[in-house]
């Protein structure tokens, strides 16, 4: 039973143009938002960009490594808590022995990535020894472990979460303005996409994609898959941690509900919805997901009914994700 097609992407001009178009479109949102006089748009777009980063991170292991991980919300949450705890110390409300008290993003974002990456590596050592259904269930269990740990940590707000008032800065400049912060997130997404694109096409990416297709063959050729899968998992966790830190920064708040297993499932849905075989697929998926969530929840209190139905429909019908529709449309347009 194979997973989604891990088609060999090239660093072709088409893909890079696609990424560039996406990023430019996202960068135009504040302008459009201002023109329409609708500030809500930026709020939604910030959410989309942050979840897009997390989903792109997940897709490194899911779409290209064939590993169905259900612990990425947990890693996302770790990143969020690293930023939250570091910043909340400035308020004097909490203290942590291992984290600096700072709201400087240039310090705290790399730190969030490092901690989340380390956590992913530790969980990966156990989870990657197994495969298939075991892997899915173990990552799900790890996600819940992280969730319950933060629920139990009363000094960091427990189930209610951790609020902080400290102003965040980037290289000393205030970074909390809604629009500048949004541009920062778009820039982070652009960097992540460009880096992922290189990574997937590199020798490392080749090994990762090959391991998803035929691990036994890879071993017989002389490449043990485990260290590569582990590195990919840790890297993926680090980028998910970055997204989580940005998420906490965007609302000056982080709580265990951001790391529930349902959030992990949501991230998987975003990847599948957008298209597993493409680096930028999850960006489209995150956009569609968050937009649909916003529209449906404004429409009815029972929106989850429609949303669940939508997910089922996606699984049944849309094997290549939304990005395939775009590509098919583009090809059809060219042919006619």
């Amino acid at each position: 039973m194979t997973l989604a097609p891990a088609a060999p992407p090239r660093a072709s001009s088409a893909t890079l143009i696609g990424i560039a178009v996406l990023v430019v479109a996202l960068a135009l949102v504040p302008t459009v938002s201002q023109a329409l006089g609708n500030p809500f748009l930026i709020k939604i777009a910030t959410r989309i960009v942050i979840f897009a980063i997390a989903a792109v991170a997940l897709n490194l292991v899911l779409g290209f490594g064939g590993l169905v991980s259900l612990c990425h919300a947990g890693l996302f949450g770790i990143g969020g808590y690293v930023l939250g705890i570091a910043a909340a110390q400035l308020d004097g409300e909490v203290s942590a022995a291992l984290l600096p008290a700072t709201g400087e993003l240039a310090v705290v974002l790399p730190l969030a990535m490092a901690v989340a990456g380390l956590a992913a590596a530790v969980m990966g050592v156990i989870a990657l020894r197994t495969s298939g259904a075991y892997f899915i269930m173990i990552t799900l269990a790890f996600n819940q472990m992280l969730y319950y740990v933060f629920v139990a940590l009363q000094q960091y707000g427990g189930e209610d979460g951790l609020q902080f008032n400290a102003a965040l800065t980037l290289f000393g400049h205030p970074a909390t303005g809604r629009v500048p912060f949004y541009y920062g997130c778009v820039a982070a997404l652009a960097l992540v996409l460009a880096g992922m694109q290189r990574l997937i096409a590199s020798r490392f990416g080749v090994v990762l994609r090959a391991s998803a297709q035929n691990e036994r063959r890879l071993t017989a050729l002389g490449i043990p898959p485990l260290p590569y899968k582990l590195a990919a998992f840790a890297l993926s966790g680090a980028v998910a941690g970055l997204a989580g830190a940005l998420f906490a920064a965007s609302q000056s708040f982080i709580s265990p509900s951001a790391m529930s297993w349902v959030q992990s499932g949501d991230l998987v849905v975003m990847c599948v919805l957008g298209g597993l075989a493409y680096v930028a697929g999850p960006v489209i998926g995150a956009g569609a997901f968050v937009a649909l969530e916003a529209v449906l929840s404004g429409w009815s209190v029972h929106w989850q009914l429609a949303f669940g139905g939508f997910i089922i429909a996606v699984v049944v019908t849309l094997r290549g994700g939304l990005i395939d529709l775009v590509r098919i449309a583009a090809r059809g347009g060219r042919a006619s």
């Binding site: 039973m1 259904a133 029972h302 669940g308 997910i311």
Partner: peptide, 25 residues
């Protein structure tokens, strides 16, 4: 039954939402 584990996770994930919401209704 014959589909990938990923599809199974997704479809049952969607079903949980549906069943939870129906129960809530």
């Amino acid at each position: 039954y014959g589909r990938s584990h990923l599809d199974q996770v997704l479809v049952t994930f969607g079903l949980i939402m549906v069943i939870n919401e129906l129960t809530r209704m």
